[in-house]
Computed example of a mutant assay.
Amino acid sequence: MTAVAGAGRDRVTLTGLRVHGRHGVLPAERELGQFFVIDATLWLDTGPAAATDDLTLTVHYGELAQALADVVAGEPVDLIETLAHRLVRVCLADPRVDTAEVTVHKPAAPVPLPFTDIAVTVARSRQDLAG
């Protein structure tokens, strides 16, 4: 992992969130849509939540999943790079999150050759967005 991971921080990871969206440059992708799979890893200090057993002191992964799903199901974009950047900003909207990494998988991308997956991964820290 690169330096964006943070120095020895804890992680909350959401893997395999499957959401129907209408992203892509081809008219059929916009009209019919397809499923996208989202993975997100958030670096933060989970110590306060663990010490008090208080959900409000950490990332609520159910709310995170819904916020990410709302973006994927929402306004279409041409590129999954654009979608990944939008999603990483959602993750960093929580002030407890220092760094976030989001992967957008497009397993049904219109590629005329056999493939397993196409994905874009974006990693950003709070400092990256501030600068």
Results as ranks from 00 to 15, higher is better:
Met1Ala: 14
Met1Lys: 14
Val4Thr: 11
Ala5Met: 13
Gly6Pro: 03
Gly6Phe: 13
Gly6Met: 11
Arg9Phe: 06
Arg9Cys: 12
Val12Ala: 01
Val12Asp: 00
Thr13His: 10
Thr13Pro: 02
Leu14His: 06
Gly16Cys: 07
Arg18Met: 04
Val19Lys: 11
Gly21Gln: 06
Gly21Arg: 03
Arg22Ser: 04
Pro27Met: 06
Ala28Gly: 00
Ala28Tyr: 03
Glu29Cys: 02
Arg30Pro: 04
Glu31Cys: 01
Glu31Pro: 03
Leu32His: 11
Gly33Val: 01
Gln34Lys: 10
Gln34Met: 12
Phe35Arg: 15
Phe36Asn: 03
Val37Asn: 01
Asp39Arg: 00
Asp39Met: 05
Ala40Gln: 09
Leu42Glu: 06
Trp43Val: 07
Leu44Val: 09
Asp45Arg: 10
Thr46His: 11
Gly47Ser: 12
Gly47Tyr: 08
Ala49Lys: 14
Ala50Gly: 05
Thr52Trp: 07
Leu57Thr: 02
His60Lys: 15
His60Glu: 04
Tyr61Val: 02
Leu68Lys: 06
Val71Thr: 08
Val72His: 05
Val72Pro: 07
Glu75Asp: 12
Glu75Pro: 04
Pro76His: 01
Val77Ile: 00
Val77Ser: 11
Asp78Gln: 08
Ile80Gly: 08
Glu81Thr: 09
Glu81Cys: 05
Leu83Trp: 02
Leu83Thr: 00
Ala84Trp: 09
Leu87Phe: 00
Cys91Gly: 04
Cys91Val: 08
Leu92Lys: 02
Leu92Trp: 09
Ala93Leu: 04
Ala93Arg: 02
Pro95Tyr: 07
Arg96Asn: 06
Arg96Leu: 00
Val97Ala: 09
Thr99Met: 01
Ala100Asp: 14
Ala100Gln: 03
Ala100Trp: 11
Val102Cys: 02
Val102Ile: 09
Val102Gln: 00
Pro107Ser: 03
Pro107Thr: 02
Ala108Arg: 08
Val111Lys: 09
Val111Ile: 15
Leu113Ile: 15
Leu113Tyr: 13
Pro114Thr: 13
Pro114Ser: 12
Phe115Glu: 15
Phe115Gly: 13
Thr116Tyr: 02
Asp117Glu: 08
Ile118Glu: 00
Val120Lys: 10
Thr121Tyr: 01
Asp128Leu: 07
Leu129Arg: 12
Leu129Phe: 14
Leu129Met: 15
